[in-house]
Amino acid sequence: MILKGFREKSNKKYFNKMLVNRKVSNTSKTIESLGVILNIDEVSNIEAIKSISKLLNIRPNSFKIITYSEADQGIEASEFPCYSPKDIGWSGKIKNVELEMFLNTKFDALISYYFTDNLDLKVLTAAANVDFKIGVLQEEQRLNDLIINVNPEAIEVFKKELLKYLSILKRI
């Protein structure tokens, strides 16, 4: 238990360092590639999340979803790569090669679709190599460039608002 507390403290320190050193992109480049970080424990309609790529005219090879689950049983039930707290070590060190490849992939935008204040998910979002970050979590305002406040099951409302704001920002 003590080690878990030390791990969490080192990850908080890493997370804050990532936010302080973050370079915000000022360009309004159109979104051609999209990554999604999804908490599988909170979302039941993954097909609606997948349809965001069609809505934004993203090619299938430029769209990738990873899922996260606190419980190990969520990992087997998901059709997408699913990760757990075991894949994130001290100081934000990623222990899984596939997860590290996702975080190092250069995306034009990243959607962080999770509602719980989970440090591991925030570390993944902060570590992603992305120009424009979109999220629904509001407790850490420095994490995302665009925050859309919706209910967890209101994915259609999220998609409509996302389209509206990306049009205003000239990202689509």
Results as ranks from 00 to 15, higher is better:
Y68E: 05
F107C: 07
V20T: 13
D145V: 11
E79W: 00
N149S: 11
A77K: 15
V150L: 02
I88P: 06
R171A: 11
K13C: 04
D145E: 11
N149F: 13
K9P: 04
L163N: 06
A77V: 00
D117Y: 04
V36Q: 05
Q141A: 09
N45M: 13
L99H: 06
R142I: 08
I148M: 01
F102G: 00
N151H: 10
E139L: 05
K164R: 10
V123S: 04
P85E: 12
A109H: 01
D87Y: 14
I46Y: 05
E98C: 07
K95L: 09
P152N: 02
N21W: 08
M101A: 15
S51Y: 02
K50D: 14
S84V: 03
A48T: 01
N104H: 08
Y14F: 15
V130C: 02
E32P: 07
I148D: 04
E47Q: 10
R22N: 13
S33V: 10
K86R: 13
I58C: 12
F102W: 07
E32L: 13
A127H: 15
S78H: 01
L110H: 02
N45H: 10
L166Q: 00
E139N: 14
I172C: 08
C82E: 10
E161R: 03
I58F: 01
F158Y: 04
V20H: 12
S78N: 10
K4Y: 06
N26C: 10
D131L: 09
I66F: 06
T116K: 15
N16L: 11
M1K: 13
N39S: 10
G35M: 06
V130D: 00
F63I: 13
S69G: 12
F102R: 01
I88A: 05
N118W: 02
E100C: 03
L162N: 03
Q141H: 02
V43P: 00
N57F: 06
